[in-house]
Design a protein around this nucleic acid. Structure first.
Lengths: 97, 97
DNA sequence: ATATTTACTTTGCATTTCAAAGTACTTTCA
DNA sequence: TGAAAGTACTTTGAAATGCAAAGTAAATAT
């Protein structure tokens, strides 16, 4: 089996979703991610933190007017790792159908 | 996002692997699964138990000669759930590329 | 007869996942 | 202007999950 090519960091569906959104949209703030993924703040924050810790996401804290705004962006490494993960998934699916 | 269409039971890569093997091969015993997935006994057993508990796998304990042989088979429900999961994954991949 | 192997199962610790509560503001409106 | 409500996260802690090591019972090898 090619299961070992699947990246453990992307096992979780919320993290899969985060990466999927960020690889398409380049960058996205906390609230948009929260809306798109329909998760609680704490849950989202912890997954974002996890991805940041592995170096797959970079975080940019700024402001919109006087309100804080945190933007998440995929890193080069993150994109590479994610695409490899998708390749492995695709392979698994293909061999399963 | 279509993350909610991903089945939580299949988040884990070992369980993904188990289902993928069983949907193709119809049935497989403990040892073959262990070899194919390269996991420890305990780890494999607990994932098989999890899938059995949700009703996605059926277990058949028998013998080969005088030695025990436990065969795992995918259930109708399991196959349906797994195919839906793959559909959701495929959709996510497609929208990400 | 004893040691080793096989095929799992049980146990228990470590990690992960998650929502609720907390924090540090900002905005609203009485 | 000051109390109340909202915003955008972060922290906390309990529950669920993941895992390998140890255990077990029967078979096989020495």
């Amino acid at each position: 089996m090619n299961v070992e090519n699947l990246n453990k960091a992307f096992d979780n569906r919320i993290r899969l979703g985060i990466m999927s959104i960020l690889v398409v949209n380049r960058e996205m703030n906390f609230n948009s991610l929260k809306e798109m993924l329909q998760v609680t703040d704490g849950n989202l924050a912890s997954h974002l933190k996890g991805l940041e810790d592995t170096g797959y996401l970079s975080v940019n804290k700024g402001f919109i007017g006087r309100k804080t705004n945190t933007i998440y962006e995929i890193t080069k490494n993150g994109e590479k790792a994610f695409r490899e993960h998708l390749d492995a998934l695709e392979f698994l699916i293909k061999n399963t159908r």
